[in-house]
Nucleic acid binder design. Sequence first.
DNA 1: GCAAAGCACGAAAACGGTTTCGTGTTAATA
DNA 2: TATTAACACGAAACCGTTTTCGTGCTTTGC
Lengths: 342, 342
Amino acid sequence: MKRKITLKHIARELDVSISTVSKALKNSEEISRETKEKIQAFAKLYNYKPNNIAISLKNKRTKNIGVIIPDIVHHFFTTVFRGIEKYANDKGYNVIVCVSDESFDKEVINMEMLANGSIDGFIMALSAETQLKNDYNHLKQVTDQGIPLVLFDRVTDEVNCDKVIIDDQAAAHMAVSKMIADGRQRIALVTTEDYLNVSSKREEGYRKALEEHNLPVREELILRLPYQYEDEKLSEVFFATQEVDAVLCVNEIFAVRTIRFLEDNDLRVPSDVSVIGFTDGILSRLSNPTLSSVAQHGEEMGTIAAKMLIDKVESDIEEGEEEYRTEVVEATLIERESTRSS
Amino acid sequence: MKRKITLKHIARELDVSISTVSKALKNSEEISRETKEKIQAFAKLYNYKPNNIAISLKNKRTKNIGVIIPDIVHHFFTTVFRGIEKYANDKGYNVIVCVSDESFDKEVINMEMLANGSIDGFIMALSAETQLKNDYNHLKQVTDQGIPLVLFDRVTDEVNCDKVIIDDQAAAHMAVSKMIADGRQRIALVTTEDYLNVSSKREEGYRKALEEHNLPVREELILRLPYQYEDEKLSEVFFATQEVDAVLCVNEIFAVRTIRFLEDNDLRVPSDVSVIGFTDGILSRLSNPTLSSVAQHGEEMGTIAAKMLIDKVESDIEEGEEEYRTEVVEATLIERESTRSS
DNA sequence: GCAAAGCACGAAAACGGTTTCGTGTTAATA
DNA sequence: TATTAACACGAAACCGTTTTCGTGCTTTGC
């Protein structure tokens, strides 16, 4: 086993000082050509690589960024992460991921673990519980220490920092308007029961689109479901009312399950009922029928978030004007088989 | 902005030495009760947290583990990662993820980036390109340095280290045997064209099961597809031969697309054709019909891999007997709508 | 009353680098 | 020949901890 070699080893072996070795390996003008060549050759031979930890301690820069997301087995977060990872890696940064599991406590613990020198900045999406508690002290503590922070998707106005979001309201508005244009009249909304920022924005967009087209907003057509639900739940809307001709779902899974439920109850998609979901993931592309879906462009969001963060990290202004930006990524409606004009 | 406070600050402020502060905060017996209380109170007040980087440098342990996977937007890898992350976090470790994107070069670069002190050990699944090139020098270099390494799923015999795999051959064997027991006779295999270790193991299991049940292995029933393929490709088997009554697919996506293709060509699943896939992910559970699938228990694999790695990292024996283990996680066949006896 | 112990704390090295500021030697200049 | 500049390198501080080894002072024991 060849242990890692250090500057000290090289210095001892070649009978020069540590500083000389350091400078030689950086090709400093201070060192004579022959000494440099000797040292560089030796370093190459023994495959010398500087110790990252030592460098981090010296420059107070780790070249690591911390990413905290509620869930990793989730298509949207995964695509955002890919965007972050790619951009960061290109810039020479590594990414440390922590999963909050939608829990406030885990989010706090993870942030504290990383905030003590392990990372240069954070990118995160708030956990559901954090949004419910409305407690953002852990975030403020981090920003107070001068650690850059970028929030994406699940954001809050309570914290001053860079953000990247999609305009959920506009996206839902677009989807509903599309259905109305296709001749749909009784449009249901299937959303989550917990009060996530994104869900409520989508609901707003849904309501606004109906109102703008002079259609009544029927509360009985809005169904709020937990993440784990029984199919019978769906019957409240689709059986009791029996007149739905279109459904907007706030995620892919709800959409696919809705389609399946409809077809099991002899309603055809899209001829009888038109369906649109959010999160243009693998399910949308491969379900049967394929699902029209609002693409959130997760990878792009990730790239933007990473760029914003790294720009902040590498800017020397430290904390000048405190100018924070919010980037809005435009959502796109991908039309597939689950929507056709009636 | 309150900058991070250090031992030195506390020492200066309280007019004691740095060593005294350090010991006091560790509740050392050496320090008098009153001094300890004073220092601890001060530290609490200013929210002192020791700098991770400095500690890492001192004990040559980062409490970080590096995970390198070919793709993050992939259900199986994602579940494995979740298992790793959970276990590691419980043990006080953070996880740095790098994505090799199935590229040999990226894999090498990522390993080198992390191997210079950033992590205490690696968990990885080999990239497709690495398996093709059959070049594992980057792995050997890492293990030669005494850095623990655990391979999962995509492994190789060329490297001596801990491994965790599923018995792909047995899993495929089980799936095919099940179909035969259900009365299927002409069973097709849809697999990848690149020579991944896992695919070939599954093919072996497929062949073996047929042979053991005295069914002929027809090469024309084995279809090798690229990751991105056109549906027409499928017709080679299913139209040309026209007699398939069951299909084993080496992943979920191939399975779902196969089902869709069959149904578009007026073959009913499962009555006419029975289908089983690998990777029991979201697609299997939500496709229509739901897909019978070989569950690889990714999260369990992740947990095991993390445990193996951390045990190695924390064992002091350094490099004693060089005893490496290979854990085999048993696959399970989850039966759903796409298989029913004919 | 003096040596030995015990107590409470500090100095300094170490981890592995970077960087500033000398300093001794040689060569060029007045 | 004496002064100076350039050159090539080394000493040492520093980043923030931990830890070993003193050391001065008080207390105990005889």
